[in-house]
């Protein structure tokens, strides 16, 4: 058991990521505001649908604002709670907007002592018939958005398009991190092999790479499922998706190459060199090219991942361990392949 502790550790960490990642509730959010587009100079009633909300617990203490920027916000005149998931807000929209545009989007902010503050970005669009920014400036109040509540509980952030799928951060993303760690270790073994031509190092590299490819394919599949319900299609020919597929194909050729040699020494040497080449091409494919153009994927062009928008501290508590857990599981799987190949070689040598 002394030698196997890290395998158990990997399993325990992955299990922890499953339990924590699935059981922790999301923060209260706003699903939609109806109607989403209103006109100026009217009294409008917005029906706001909440998610994980408990509006009845905060009957008279609910507050709501339509916020344009840090200087302009309009407080709701009346807040009427229908049930836990539905609240009706009444706003008196002034006759003119404080901007030179016909349409302006407003962020809806709802604050409740029971649930904390929730936000619907660009939730309401206000249209004006005639433009008069000066009149609008005087008409729009700057309601004080102060003393927002925060719910004291362990929760994950609520994002409108993502919803519960934010949990996929613990199942889709760590696969890629683990894949990368496995590929780096494989390159280290390939370099080691080229230094002293020990067959075992090359076999280690091959085993680690094969598990890395499995993780990569799983990452692509899980990413496609996630994309279907957030981007709208399994495969949007997004630069990140395409380049990853190309990278994995290059890695796939590594095994085609290995299978095409009879002489084991030649096979080991050439595939070690190819492995280094494959890893060198993977970095620009995965991490440079997607950053140069527009992509739907976080972490690519104009879409920064790992800001506080994507990952808060509660998520980090699950996300980082998940990387370690999947890496350990991957090393375990690679060791099984390696040991089996060792046995085969010993058998053939006899």
């Amino acid at each position: 058991m002394k030698k196997h502790w890290w395998k158990a550790l990997g399993v325990v960490i992955v299990l922890y990521s499953f339990f924590m990642g699935l059981l922790t509730p999301l923060k209260t959010g706003i699903l939609e505001a109806n109607p989403a587009s209103v006109r100026t100079g009217q009294e409008v009633m917005l029906e706001v649908k909440g998610y994980n909300s408990f509006y009845t617990q905060a009957q008279n203490e609910l507050r709501a604002w339509l916020k344009m920027d840090s200087e302009r916000a309009l407080a709701a005149r009346r807040v009427e709670v229908v049930d836990d998931r539905l609240v009706k807000l009444t706003f008196d929209i002034p006759a003119f907007l404080p901007v030179d545009k016909k349409v302006q989007d407003f962020t809806l902010i709802l604050d409740s002592p029971a649930d904390g503050a929730s936000v619907l970005p660009s939730g309401v669009f206000v249209t004006q018939d005639s433009i008069n920014a000066a009149l609008g400036e005087t008409a729009w109040p700057n309601a004080d958005i102060a003393n927002l509540h925060e719910k004291a509980a362990i929760t994950f952030p609520f994002r409108n398009i993502l919803g519960e799928t934010i949990r996929n951060t613990y199942y889709h993303v760590p696969l890629w991190f683990a894949m990368f760690i496995l590929f780096i270790s494989a390159v280290v073994y390939s370099v080691k092999h080229l230094r002293n031509f020990d067959q075992r190092y090359d076999e280690q590299a091959a085993a680690l790479t094969s598990v890395g490819i499995l993780y990569g394919i799983l990452g692509l599949v899980t990413g496609a499922i996630w994309a279907k319900h957030t981007w709208g299609a399994y495969w949007s020919f997004d630069v990140k998706q395409n380049m990853t597929a190309v990278g994995l194909l290059i890695y796939g050729a590594y095994f085609v190459l290995r299978a095409s040699f009879e002489d084991p020494e030649k096979k080991a040497r050439i595939s070690a060199v190819y492995n280094i080449f494959a890893f060198a091409t993977l970095i620009p494919l995965l991490y440079v090219i997607p950053k140069l153009t527009d992509s739907l994927h976080p972490g690519a062009g104009g879409n920064i991942a790992f800001g506080s928008q994507d990952l808060d501290n509660t998520m980090r508590m699950v996300f980082y361990p998940a990387i370690i857990g999947w890496t350990l599981m991957g090393v375990w799987m690679a060791q099984l392949i390696f040991r089996m190949n060792r046995l085969k070689h010993r058998l053939l040598e006899e």
Partner: peptide, 25 residues
Amino acid sequence: FMRSMGKMYVVVAVIAAIFIGLVIF
């Protein structure tokens, strides 16, 4: 179906895909 319960079933599908991957291994 996939969009009910705040798209929770997308997470279920992703975990099922990973499980199938381990089975393939």
